[in-house]
Amino acid sequence: MELFTPEIGLVFWMFVAFILLFLVLAKWGWPMIIKMMDKRASTIDRGVEDARQAREQLDNAREEARKYVVEAQAKQSEMLREAAKMKSDIIEEARREAAEAARREMESARLAIDQARKEAELQFRNEVGKVSIDIAEKMVRTRMQNDKAQTELVNRLLDEIEKN
């Protein structure tokens, strides 16, 4: 039964020892430990958070860079397409202009040719007239070398005039 009856002396010393231990540790022990553990925990948490943010930023930066690259590529292909279009435009234009120029050239050439032909025709007619007159003159001269012929002609002409 003595096991179940608390001994006064032991209770007293236990109480004193425990309270002393508690007071000393509560003053100089535990607050320090808990403070530092909390601090370390929050530091570690902050570190983890920082790392996470850094990674996020890195990911963001990478994403952005990729976006820039894609954009640049898009721009490049756009430019290339534009350049190609411009090239074909220029070629087209040049071709058109060349065609136009050729057409104009031909037109003017045709006009010149027409002109020349007309002139040539005119000249030719004049020449032909002149030649035929010359021929006629020569023929007349040759046929009018004797008086008879002349008189006959005069008569025929007179006849003609009379008939008229």
Partner: peptide
């Protein structure tokens, strides 16, 4: 009896 018995001494050691 406030003697420092074996148990009391052991309490001090534990402290």
């Amino acid at each position: 009896d406030l003697s420092v018995t074996k148990n009391v001494a052991a309490i001090f050691i534990a402290v």
